[in-house]
Structure formats: C-alpha cells, structure tokens
Amino acid sequence: MKKLIFLFLGLSLFSCSSDGTIDDNGSGGGSGGGNTTVDPFKATVDGISYVFTTLNNTNIADATGGLYGNTYFLIKGNKDTGSVKGNLSGKIDTKKYEIKLAIPKSNVAIGTHNFSNTIQPDEYYADLDITGVLPAQTVVASTGFIKITTYNATTKKIVGTFSFNTTDGSTTAITHTITGSFDYVLP
C-alpha cells in the first residue's frame, strides 16, 4: 500500500505542469503596444553581455528624441552592472551604462546605416554614457553601424542589431566596444 501511495504521489508531481509559460522566441503574446518581447534591448560592452532595462519597461521608442530632438526616435537602454570598486574617497561606485540609438524619423529603412560621430540631420547616431564611477568616464562614439533587419510600416515594429566603438573624446584610442540588438516599436 505504501508503495502505491508513493507511486501515486510521484506520478502526480511529474504530471503537473504550469500554464504560465514564457515566450522566449521574441514574438510576444497578446495584441497592441507595450512590451512585446522578453528582452527588447541587449548589448555586449567590452565582451560582457547584459540585458538592458528600457524606458518605462516597454519596448516603445521615445518619440520626442530626447536630447537629440523631435526629428529622431530614441531607443534607449540602461544597465546597472552591480560591479563595485573602492576609490580614494572611500565611497563604493557602481558602474551604470546607458546606450542611446538615435534613428532619424525621415530615414527609417531596412539595411545597414553607419553611425555619424556627431549628431547630424537625417543620420543615425549612437551614444554610450557611463556613470557611477570616479573619475567619470567621458566617451564619444567614433565608428559603427546599425543594421535594421525588420521594419513593418504598419505596426511600426523595428528589429535590428548595432555595433560601435567609443573613444575618450580627446584621443582616437578605442575605449569601449559595444554590440547589441533591439526589438522596439516606433510610436
């Protein structure tokens, strides 16, 4: 009888399943706006891969263009690396990355587009900000590209990859190498 009870309990444990599955293929569920992907913004910074948080936890681009102006869509991701280091003042610093991709509203097209090293009308631009460390790190995007692999003009969904290097702003030496992917909706 005991063997029968244990057999029944064992079968019960293995036959139960959860209905709350996670869609890892990026297609999302439901309809309408909001976050339609599991990880809409991923990037590798200097060889370390991260999943970035997005504005308001959605994958909807900023239509105001942020500091780049209203002629751009702004795709932005933030990552607090959680890595700490001591400094001379005895404080503990946490390195935070913010990646911004400026997409000109007048030039949204499938294909590979080079990043300009300064913000220019109708040109694509990338930026990396690093905060939370002392001394502060100044970086300037130097070379790179964005590759839009999918753009649906009806749903405004845009999917692609990006890659760029930065310098410290005063020399041409590469300070950071960034690659990543995005899956967003343009408002």
Rank of each mutant, 00 (worst) to 15 (best):
D129V: 13
D24V: 11
T167N: 10
P40T: 06
H176K: 09
G20N: 15
S170L: 14
I146E: 01
S31C: 10
A102I: 00
T71F: 09
F164N: 05
I60T: 13
S106F: 08
T167S: 11
T54I: 06
V133S: 08
A61D: 01
I92S: 11
F14P: 00
S89I: 15
F73T: 05
T161Q: 12
N107Y: 09
G169L: 06
D46M: 03
V139H: 11
F164T: 01
I48Y: 11
F115P: 02
T177I: 11
Y97W: 04
K42H: 07
T131M: 04
S142N: 12
T53S: 14
L67E: 15
Q137W: 08
L9A: 15
L128V: 00
H113P: 05
H176F: 04
T37N: 03
I110P: 01
V38N: 14
I48F: 09
G34F: 15
F8M: 12
Y184P: 03
L101G: 01
I22Q: 10
E98Q: 14
H113V: 05
N152T: 08
L128W: 01
I48S: 13
V133P: 02
K42T: 12
A43S: 00
N70E: 06
Q137Y: 08
S89E: 05
G169V: 11
L88W: 15
G66A: 05
A126S: 09
Y124I: 06
N35E: 08
M1I: 06
D93K: 13
K76L: 09
T175E: 01
I92G: 04
T81Y: 01
D183H: 10
S18K: 09
F14R: 07
T21R: 15
K91S: 11
H176S: 12
F164S: 04
T179Q: 11
D129M: 14
T172H: 11
L134A: 14
Q137M: 05
G29W: 13
T37Y: 02
G90M: 05
T161G: 12
S106L: 10
L13M: 05
D122F: 12
K2E: 12
A63L: 09
A126F: 04
A153K: 04
K100L: 14
D24N: 14
D122C: 11
K91N: 13
T64D: 09
T37F: 02
Y124C: 05
D168K: 08
T175A: 07
L101N: 05
S89D: 07
I146D: 00
F164I: 01
G33T: 15
H176A: 10
A61E: 00
S89F: 13
P40I: 02
T64W: 00
N114G: 07
K105N: 10
L55E: 06
L4F: 06
K76A: 09
